[in-house]
Amino acid sequence: MIYLAYPILLILATAVERTWPGWLLVRGQGPHLVLAAVISIGLSGGPVAGCFGGLVGGLLLASVQGAWLGGTFVAYMGLGVAVGLLRGQLLAERVLVASLVALIALPVVELIRLIFAAPPSPGPWLLHIFVGAPYTALATVPVFGAVRVVTTLLRPED
């Protein structure tokens, strides 16, 4: 059941991320809600759930963006597994940890994607990281809450 709920959350996160209202953009940047959702799924459900979240989230995001799947899968699934290993560790269920992970994860994910598809100029890419990372960390708070509620209600099997 939880593996039906996570894709629905990811579809919602993708749609909201892609239609983020213009007046909420900070220097043209919005939060990476799919990334926040993958982190939250990993922290709440473990590495398998995180990997599954990364697969579905990467597929949805890359398909809508018209991006290559390979780099996106490596970045998001790797992140999902890595974050999933934190599950059950000290403070892993704290929203602050999820936010901190998001703050670090965005530059890491974007660096991995950079290897697969380099941007034409570094300026916008750096702006994207410096503004996007804290914004994503902030947006992780409600996303993590939603994922925690869904996980608690549906109790995943490891």
Binding site: L55, G58, G70
Partner: peptide, 27 residues
């Protein structure tokens, strides 16, 4: 704090699915 042992077969299966999807996209 406790140690959890995870089963890695599902992760490998998902990685395989990802690889197939990537190849299909390239084609």
């Amino acid at each position: 704090m406790h140690t959890t042992h995870y089963r890695w077969e599902p992760v490998l299966a998902l990685a395989l699915v990802a690889a197939i999807l990537t190849v299909v996209q390239h084609r």
